[in-house]
C-alpha cells in the first residue's frame, strides 16, 4: 500500500522541504515507522519511547482521527492521505 503523508511545517527540514511524501505501509504504525526510517529527523517527534502516538500529535487518515479508529493499528489503503498535525492547547 502506498499512501500520501502530509508533512507538518516543522518537519519539512527533515523531509528535504517536501510537504507531501509517498510512504508504503498497511497500517498507520507501519507508515509512521517507514517515515522515521526514511527521514531520521522525524524520529522522536511522533511516537513516545513506548511506541505510542505522542499526546501532542494528531494523525488523520483522510478525514478521520486515528485515535477514534484503531490508533496505530488503523489500516490504510492505496491512495489514502495521512495528515500529521500538532495538537494545539494551552491554559
Amino acid at each position: 500500500m502506498s499512501v500520501e503523508v502530509r508533512i507538518p511545517t516543522v518537519l519539512r527540514s527533515a523531509s528535504a522541504g517536501q510537504a507531501v511524501v509517498s510512504v508504503d505501509g498497511s497500517t498507520i504504525g507501519e507508515v509512521l515507522g517507514m517515515l522515521q526510517d526514511a527521514y531520521p529527523g522525524v524520529r522522536g517527534q511522533l511516537l513516545t519511547d513506548e511506541g505510542r502516538l505522542h499526546r501532542f500529535v494528531n494523525v488523520y487518515v483522510n478525514d478521520d482521527d486515528v485515535r477514534y479508529l484503531d490508533k496505530l493499528d488503523t489500516k490504510v489503503n492505496d491512495g489514502d492521505v495521512v495528515s500529521i498535525l500538532p495538537a494545539v492547547a494551552g491554559g
Binding site: T9, L11, Q45, H54, F56, V57, I84, P86, G90, G91
Partner: peptide, 9 residues
C-alpha cells in the same frame, strides 16, 4: 504546550 513536538517556533 508550545515546547511540544511539532510546535513551530
Amino acid at each position: 504546550e508550545a515546547m511540544g513536538p511539532l510546535k513551530d517556533p
